[in-house]
Amino acid sequence: MSAPPTLTRETKTGSALVVSNLTKRFGDRTAFSEISFEVGYGEVFGFLGPNGAGKTTTVRTLGTLIAPTSGSATVAGIPLSPENGVEIRQRIAIMPESPGLYLRLTVTENLEFFAGLYGLHQPAARIKEALAAVNLSDRASDLCGGLSKGLRQRMGLARTLLSDPAIMFLDEPTSGLDPVAALEVCNLIIGLRQKGVTIFLTTHRLDEAEKLCDRVAIMNQSLRTVGRPDELREQLFHKALIVKTLAPLRDPDQLFSPLPGVESWRSEEPGSYVLSVSDPKVAAPEVTRGLVGAGVDVLSIAEAQHSLEDVYLELIDNNAKASQP
């Protein structure tokens, strides 16, 4: 019998997803190769990559829609295999990029159908709760064909919530939505995150991933990196201070090189300098004192901030350069 409707964090141990050297090829074409990662219960895991990177194919593989060519995975504690397909699909929910609703059926009828497929007891209570979670209770009797694209996406989310899944796979949930509708979907995902729902989110909206995800994986057929966005920033970029002065310095090397904590420097434009430092908290006061002591008119001294977009572009650019002959 299915659990009562909760949509809250379950106490589970171990990993929700364990992927080990998973590869999928379609004939000669490789969709993704040798990818390995783990996702913990209650975690929001972002799966980033350019178009054609293999994100959707990965979701379909983990969702037992297609079979891997090699490698192994455990999904919600069950080994990924064709024999375990039904059991795995019973424990997960996938929202494809297009929600795929039956447009001639009402919102409630669509959800009743899927409740039946998951064999839910007390489907009415589940449907009510899922609709409330995505703020669609007042549209329960509307035909899905009459819903806007944003509302259909919310309806797709309600459908994934219906079975209280151990893992939710959301494939580009804000794709094609206007900014307001995209923000609404993001806020819903934030709400689910706060309730402890495990979410595997594929997206190429980096601002969205940065806001929503505990950890991200960046892939382009193979996995480029996995980690927390701030960890990735630290891995890829040196800590730096950005110094701006009113006029270009006459001899920047003489000024910056002796300062404690400053490892190197470069000038991006006249009056603007990027200083690689070991620890910004140590270096910033020293740099300030040095500049003021040398009589320089300082406009600003700030720690360099790298967004997830910088990380992504750095990795994808490196990948593109590496693949060039």
């Binding site: 829609l65 039904v86 699909r89 997960i92 929202m95 494809p96 297009s98 795929g100 497929l117 998951y118």
Partner: peptide, 14 residues
């Protein structure tokens, strides 16, 4: 064609 097959196949339905 109407895009409903994939969501259907993600359920436990055999």
């Amino acid at each position: 064609e109407q895009g409903t097959l994939e969501p259907l196949l993600t359920t436990p339905l055999t």
